[in-house]
Design a protein around this nucleic acid. Structure first.
Length: 569
RNA sequence: CGGGGCGUGGCGCAGCCUGGUAGCGCGCUUGCCUUGGGCGCAAGAGGUCCCCGGUUCGAAUCCGGGCGCCCCGACCA
């Protein structure tokens, strides 16, 4: 393609609204333009790149036996009512047709795929099946952000596996892990496969592919030994804590004005790991007391899993006072029954199990209790509620965990029978018995691959995309278009590259060299072949590797072959 | 949903507080000039000042309401 005829609206100045590097660069490099919050028009460069990404995904899905479908985005409400998601999911775009029927735009397609499966799959002999599509998804996000990172309309590759039993599902799941690993590798993005939080939907297994980058929204805990997990799911070991050996009874101590754990540490000289932090949540309108070690943070995701509901919030100070007859900062678990709520539920993080002689609030303002031993002085349900912190020992190898920011690129999920049960998708097994199909669902965010690639591969001058997903492989820059022989040589090289199947963008514009170099640096094409007057007169051109800015002189005759070497490497 | 910021030619911004001719840089068009890192000179085109209402002789500017966008947090099937 010739730049003189291409629509590549590069910007010199950074659009004011762009914060994330990928957002800034995709706008500046003329890849995308914003239509509305979380809605973007893909221009020529973005489209070329995304088509390449989709093709890689397609090839890898086909390689594991996936069959490509295309299901409509416009879905009738009935199926979503059957699965229970119509009311349960709040990001669904809902609409009505002229007859008043409810419709929605697909957020994923479990319902539609299961609907096809239940109508057509009758026998275990037809299993396993893997069906996938690459298609637009719509989500009414509370807060779209960071350019193409969190969109309201986006491309997803979503696939669904149908197996007779768990063993079959394991195979389908592993195949997807393999396909995803290959996909991200081929796309040139650095991705980690991590354990993920599988939500409240049936205690299933799920894994996430995440790309470490500053613009990420998730935190991933990583250990040297290979253990890695989303912070929502991550667990860690704990350094042992020594509690006093005595067996003293709880004793009230005056702690005027001491509210936070920090205050208490200063006031008592005791360490924070020797204290119990008391939180109050309102769970479906009932108060629940949550106990954490003084230096530990609550993970609301883990709390959600422990409670089996997402309907909860921290109690207001007034609500907490009502329960404890004391203000925040002086709350504690001891004697809660006697304050009026005989049956208040108390959840304690596992790190408190087996501990003794700790310090906590006394349920009287400006008072705390010491010598408090869990199990003896109060009863609680012990659950893993703690958010792992940087430096906690890895549960597998004991080395300190590192926390990194990452973008979620894909999610693989063992659904089990949730949808087949709700929607009655059954087959006959070998014994002639009707059984529910065991399902998996698997997603990849297509734009996020491009976004992550930009985040991971940019510098002050622009981006350098991996050659597998760059919109063009080579940009041919003729620095001096007014020089007739040089221009002719450029035309020749351009035609030669086209003939040899090199995807080349020929910058044949009548611009000054500076402008062309700046634009070439910006738009992410991995190799630049430059024709400049001085070297051209000696029969030479130069190849610039955009990622490293390394320059190599080549003769005009050898230039295209040399480029092809780079492209193959 | 809570907090903060912003809406003025295509892009980046000033003007608003203190009401009175809508301005700057970049980009765009034309001509000359220049040609290895966003040249120079000159002449031009281009704006419902987000929308609606109010105050006023007069509103980009003051007041009320609305819409949109960005950021932080909450949320994220």
């Amino acid at each position: 393609m010739r730049w003189s005829q291409a629509f590549i609206p590069t910007l010199r100045e950074v659009p004011a609204e762009a914060e994330a590097a990928s957002h800034r660069l995709l706008l500046r490099a003329g890849y995308v333009r914003q239509v509305s919050a979380g809605i973007y028009a893909h221009l020529m460069l973005a489209r070329r790149s995304l088509l390449k990404i989709m093709q890689i995904i397609r090839e890898e899905m086909n390689a594991i036996g996936g069959q490509e479908f295309y299901l409509p985005s416009l879905n009738p409400a009935e199926l979503w009512r059957e699965s229970g998601r119509w009311d349960a999911v709040d990001v669904i775009f809902k609409l009505k047709d002229r007859a008043g029927h409810d419709l929605c735009l697909g957020i994923t397609h479990e319902e539609e795929m299961t609907n096809i499966a239940r109508g057509e799959l009758r026998s275990y002999k037809q299993l396993p099946q893997i069906w996938y599509q690459i298609q637009s998804k719509y989500r009414d996000e509370p807060r779209p952000k960071s350019g193409l990172l969190r969109l309201r309309e986006f491309f997803m590759k979503d696939s669904y596996s149908f197996d007779l039993d768990e063993a079959g599902l394991d195979v389908s799941y592993d195949k997807h892990v393999q396909a995803y690993t290959n996909t991200f590798k081929r796309c040139g993005v650095r991705a980690l496969f991590v354990e993920a939080f599988s939500g409240m939907m049936g205690g299933s297994v799920s894994g996430e592919f995440t790309a470490p980058t500053e613009a990420g929204e998730d935190f991933i805990a990583i250990s040297e030994c290979g253990y890695s997990a989303n912070l929502e799911k991550a667990v860690s070991g704990l350094a042992p804590v020594e509690d006093p050996v005595g067996n003293e009874s709880p004793e009230t101590i005056a702690t005027p004005g001491q509210k936070t754990i920090e205050d208490l540490v200063r006031f008592t000289g005791e360490r924070p790991e020797r204290m119990i932090k008391t939180l109050v949540y309102v769970v479906e309108s009932e108060p629940v007391v949550i106990l954490m070690r003084g230096d530990h943070a609550l993970s609301e995701t883990k709390l959600s899993a422990a409670l089996g509901t997402a309907v909860f919030r921290p109690a207001t100070p007034e609500e907490a006072f009502k329960l404890h007859h004391a203000h925040l900062g002086s709350l504690g678990p001891v004697g809660l029954a006697s304050t009026g709520h005989a049956k208040v539920r108390i959840l304690a993080d596992k790190a408190l199990e087996g501990r003794r002689d700790m310090t906590t609030g006394a349920n009287q303002d400006d008072m705390h209790l010491r010598h408090v031993t869990p199990g003896r002085d109060f009863q609680a349900e012990y659950r893993d509620l703690r958010a792992v912190a940087e430096g906690d020992p890895c549960i597998k190898c004991g080395k300190p965990l590192e926390l990194v920011k990452a973008v979620e690129l894909g999610h693989v999920f063992k659904l089990g029978r949730r949808y087949s049960k709700a929607m009655h998708a059954n087959v006959l097994d070998a014994a002639g018995k009707e059984v529910e199909i065991v399902m998996g669902s698997y997603g990849i965010g297509v734009e996020r691959i491009l976004t992550a690639a930009v985040e991971q591969n940019h510098d002050k001058d622009g981006m350098f995309l991996p050659k597998s997903i760059a919109p063009f492989q080579v940009i041919l820059t003729a620095a001096n278009m007014d020089d007739a022989p040089l221009r002719e040589a450029g035309e020749g090289l351009y035609k030669q590259m086209l003939a040899e199947g090199v995807e080349v963008l020929f910058d044949d514009r009548d611009e000054r060299p500076g402008v062309k170099f700046k634009d070439a640096d910006l738009i992410g094409v991995p190799y630049r072949l430059t024709l400049g007057r001085r070297k051209f007169e000696q029969g030479q051109a130069e190849i610039l590797v955009r990622s490293t800015k390394q320059v190599q002189d080549v003769s005009l005759e050898r230039a295209v072959q040399a480029l092809k070497q780079h492209l193959l490497s």
